[in-house]
């Protein structure tokens, strides 16, 4: 799964490598070989197998797709998966952008320290982080204990098993990723661009809107697409924190593979998820370009 449409910055890196290597495109193509081989064996081949399973039972058939799109349950869950992933990705980017901006505008000396702080959560596996939510927010968890001790509530509050907590947990997992990706993009924006805009007459807000924001757009797109695609695959978080009513497609795939043993159905679900994911990622990239463009100038 993961990085399909997300390698937006790869092009630039590749070009700069070509400058370093001073070779033409053709003769340096061998550099791609190890990655291409790995992808072919571990990614393309399994995907092809999954595609095949989704269309063949005893013979070619569309019955699994019919089952998915004919069932209200699957349609609802598919829609919910998209909405959850989209909202989680957007929240991560919106919350992460100011943090990335803060990091990117620190003096070089202190930048690394701040970055370490942002990356700290990644040292703890997301499974453990998810369980910690369960403990923290459970009926008899410290959060409720504290609230009751303070007299703010006399009944334990139902934090778990709902949308809010799923979003919170997803964003918490995605945030370091979103911040680092956008931060990396912002590093290439020179401080003098903002100075130039200011001395030419732009207020700080105008300089941000017309210069900084458009130049950080590719970072936003990368972060949004990566967060979205990662969210599509979440299943521990919705399962543990959201409960069965907030199940996502991945939970359905999990069940089809591990419980009901309908592998063809699981494959079809996987294909649907992949295609929808690619489509939405494309739309997101386009939308960000539109939203952050400096507008037609001269006006």
């Amino acid at each position: 799964m993961s990085t399909g449409p997300a390698s937006v910055s790869g092009g630039a890196r590749w070009r700069s490598w070509r400058i370093v290597s001073m070779r033409s495109e053709g003769s340096s193509a061998w550099l791609l070989a190890p990655a291409a081989l790995l992808l072919a064996v571990c990614f393309v081949a399994p995907i092809l197998v999954v595609f095949r399973w989704s269309f063949f039972a005893d013979g070619p058939t569309l019955e699994f797709y019919r089952e998915i799109f004919g069932s209200t349950l699957y349609r609802t869950i598919l829609a919910r998966t998209l909405v959850f992933s989209l909202v989680a990705a957007v929240l991560s980017v919106v919350i992460g952008y100011p943090a990335a901006y803060f990091l990117a505008t620190r003096p070089v000396r202190t930048r690394m320290n701040w970055l370490a702080v942002v990356l700290l959560p990644l040292w703890v596996s997301s499974l453990i982080r998810t369980y910690s939510w369960l403990i923290l927010l459970g009926r008899e968890g410290p959060a409720n204990m504290a609230l009751m001790a303070l007299g703010l509530t006399d009944q334990p509050i139902q934090f778990l098993y709902g949308r809010g907590i799923v979003y919170a947990a997803m964003v918490q997992v995605l945030l370091p990723m979103a911040v680092t990706i956008m931060y990396a993009g912002m590093l290439s924006i020179e401080q003098t661009f903002i100075k130039a805009a200011r001395i030419l007459g732009a207020s700080p807000a105008y300089a941000f809107r017309k210069v900084f924001l458009p130049l950080s757009a590719s970072g936003i797109t990368n972060a949004l697409v990566i967060c979205f695609v990662l969210s599509l695959g979440f299943f521990i978080t919705p399962n543990l924190l959201g409960g069965p009513r907030e199940a996502m497609i991945s939970n359905m795939i999990d069940r089809a593979v591990n419980e009901s043993l309908e592998w063809n159905l699981a494959a079809a679900l996987g294909v649907v998820l992949l295609l929808v994911g690619i489509a939405v990622a494309g739309i997101l990239a386009f939308a960000i370009r539109l939203l952050t463009s400096p507008g037609r100038m001269p006006r």
Binding site: T192, F193, L215
Partner: peptide
């Protein structure tokens, strides 16, 4: 500015 600082976009 020394580096020109033309807006690249």
């Amino acid at each position: 500015f020394q580096g020109y600082s033309l807006f690249p976009h």
